[in-house]
Design a protein around this nucleic acid. Structure first.
Length: 182
DNA sequence: GTATTGATCTTCT
DNA sequence: GAAGATCAATACA
């Protein structure tokens, strides 16, 4: 699954449950970044920061955004390709109390609705950069039922934002921006 | 309700 | 020196 292209991997990840040390939820929003993508960190070369993006798939790429937030990606594609899927939103299902504690917010809706929020709620930091997702404390649980992915324009970027590589689960109320698509 | 700005790290110009 | 895959607090209508 993660050996596929970034857009395919992004849509395939929807509905999976991601747990970090027993805390997490269902992936309801993900965004694809490919190597030839001007918006991707891997575009135009490898740097110390994005090195894990070029590593083996099924690992984490965690980077700092705007010097403040951490954002978590799932690396996909073969080694050296540099494509990844940005996790933008989860539906919180496990360890709500711990996520609330980390986030410092009461509103359940805002626990994981957004890349920075998601990483903070799961306790992901640069320390997890390059970590494997198929070993503890991580757990990836397949969807109980097939989900209904919807491709939408990407959000929060200025280049190639018209590529419909942002995938959300149809009807989910846990996505990061705007109202859920009909 | 929408609009603007601060926080502050990595990379690129 | 400036911009960026962001969020939250503040200012205004």
């Amino acid at each position: 699954m993660l050996a596929a292209s970034a857009p395919e991997a992004a849509s395939a990840l929807l509905g999976w449950t991601l747990l970090v040390d027993g805390v997490g939820g269902v992936i309801v929003e993900a965004e694809a970044y490919a190597q030839d993508d001007p918006a991707s960190h891997s575009y135009g070369g490898r740097t110390p920061r994005n090195a894990s993006m070029f590593g083996p798939p099924a690992r984490l790429y965690v980077y700092r955004s705007y010097g403040v937030h951490w954002c978590a990606n799932v690396v996909c594609g073969p080694v050296g390709v540099g494509s990844a899927v940005l996790l933008r939103a989860l539906e919180p299902t496990h360890g709500l109390a711990r996520m609330r504690q980390r986030r410092g917010v009461a509103a359940e809706r805002l626990l994981c609705a957004g890349p920075g929020r998601l990483a903070q709620a799961l306790g992901l930091t640069g320390a997890h950069d390059g970590a494997r997702l198929d070993r503890p404390p991580f757990r990836l649980v397949p969807p109980a039922r097939p989900v209904d992915p919807v491709a939408t324009p990407r959000v929060g970027i200025t280049r190639a934002s018209e590529r419909p590589w942002r995938y959300v689960v149809r009807g989910s109320g846990w996505t990061s921006r705007g109202r859920p698509p009909a």
